[in-house]
Simulated assay, not measured.
Amino acid sequence: MASTAVARRRGWTRIVVVALVVLSAGGCQWPRDADGTLDRVRDGTIRVGVAHNPPWTIVEGDGREPGGVEVVLARRLADSLGARVQWVPGGEAELMAGLSERGLDLVVAGLDARSPWAQDVALTTDYLTTDEVVAVPGGEPVDTGTHLSGLDHVVAVPPGENAWQSTVERFLLDLDDDEVRRLLDTHRAGA
């Protein structure tokens, strides 16, 4: 009987501890950013690294603003936060170093979830899956029905910026897949 009473007391103790944790967490902002990225970019500036990888990202190198599917999405994200975008063009390795050192807030580069950078930066949940298929040469691409693999498209954020990453992921996951595919078709066509 003594062991039953001890077990009940431990059970109640666990319930009380969990309740206290939940109640105390209610006053805390969760998730949190290690360096306050979300608070800084909201109504401010998002520093977006962009590497050339058409049709996802198009960097001309002649001083013009970049283009491509993910550039459009980064602009929309900024608009949703009342922020402006500061574009930082560069090579993927250079941009990922800048992201991990917190010199950038976001990198768009046509990345997929199998990116080798996943150990250095934080990758978002995939927002779109595209199939790589065997096609025949010619005018219009013809799907032969042979699918090689699927690519899960992601963007990169600084590690430890959990509130920022959650905000970016919510934005991406709220996107309409058909709209993103239309953007993709438009940028593939060079429009």
Rank of each mutant, 00 (worst) to 15 (best):
A2F: 08
T4P: 03
A5P: 02
V6A: 14
R8Q: 10
R8N: 14
R8A: 13
R10T: 07
G11K: 11
R14G: 11
I15D: 09
I15R: 11
V18D: 02
G27F: 11
W30G: 07
W30T: 07
P31H: 13
R32A: 15
D33K: 02
T37E: 06
D43E: 14
D43L: 09
T45S: 07
I46S: 01
E60A: 14
D62I: 06
E65D: 15
E70M: 07
E70Q: 15
V71D: 04
V72A: 14
L73G: 00
G82D: 05
G82W: 05
R84Q: 13
R84C: 07
V85D: 01
V85P: 00
V85Q: 00
V88G: 01
A93H: 09
A93L: 12
L95F: 06
M96W: 05
E101N: 15
L104P: 00
G110W: 00
S115G: 08
P116T: 14
D120P: 01
A122D: 13
L123P: 01
L123H: 00
D126W: 02
Y127N: 04
Y127L: 07
T129W: 02
V134A: 04
V136M: 12
V136I: 13
P137N: 15
E140D: 13
D143Y: 06
T146G: 05
L148K: 00
L148Y: 00
S149E: 12
P159S: 12
G160V: 06
N162D: 12
N162K: 12
R170H: 12
F171Y: 14
L175Y: 09
L175W: 06
L175C: 03
D176T: 09
D178C: 06
T186V: 11
R188D: 11
